[in-house]
Design a protein around this nucleic acid. Structure first.
Lengths: 127, 127
DNA sequence: ATAATATTAGTAACGATTATCGTTATTATT
DNA sequence: AATAATAACGATAATCGTTACTAATATTAT
């Protein structure tokens, strides 16, 4: 995986890094088709998966609906609006939300976590 | 939704309530076919979804792979083993893991959260 | 340049879930 | 208890997000 450079992967990572809205593979595909008319949706999926597997980006499992991706690989929390479906960073950093776990109470090995808040975003509340 | 009683829904809820392993829709379908040979997979999906929508059970989005369901509707955390894929309750209760949020720092409305830990379970560590 | 092969575009296939549709079961009404 | 209204069913087709396949292309090493 990721043994040779490719213009497509470079463009995918650049696009993801440039935005903060946690786009889906299809979101990125739609944008990149303007600059790369022949790019394939499969290429976008393949590269996003490879980048996530190698730890260069983060994959956000998003319940029902497509996975979303995040170029910010620091452990942080997300918020999903149950009305419009948008996913945003949760302003509080992970450390302040999640205190150190008491590892004594669990026998396995914890490598990480996914913390997603659900609710209604400011925009949808105003409507 | 859920306007009339049905034997199938009763059996689905009973089966889910009787176990603690967070089964998938297909897991439940496989078991129930023994006692209800004509039950349809669609019926299991439809009822689990309806029960989750009405708040009687919990749906656990499980990244890649099928959704899982939980008859314990209290807010609690889960642990997923990245080796065998099992999903178990996390022994620490939610309150001790997640402190009260500072609501001042967020403009929207938070209705709940989903907290899933990832790692390797005790059994898989021993192998 | 040449060779080796990772990556691509295009498309088919896949798994999980939902929708459709004619039939059956449940509930309310007579 | 029979009848009517309709929710829920079983069977299956359709959908959606994603992955797998294949021949062609691009990248890297020789």
């Amino acid at each position: 995986m990721l043994q040779k450079h490719s213009k497509q992967r470079e463009a995918i990572l650049a696009e993801l890094s440039a935005r903060k809205d946690h786009p889906t593979a299809d979101d990125i595909y739609t944008v990149l088709r303007k600059s790369h008319p022949n790019i394939s949706l499969g290429t976008v999926y393949r590269n996003l998966s490879a980048l996530a597997d190698s730890g260069k980006i983060l994959r956000l499992h998003n319940g029902k609906g497509s996975d979303r991706f995040d170029a910010d690989i620091s452990q942080h929390c997300h918020f999903k609006c149950t009305v419009c479906g948008c996913v945003s960073d949760f302003s509080a950093d992970a450390g302040s939300v999640l205190p150190p776990l008491d590892r004594e109470c669990f026998e396995g090995r914890i490598d990480g976590y996914s913390l997603m808040f659900y609710g209604v975003c400011e925009k949808c509340l105003q409507k």
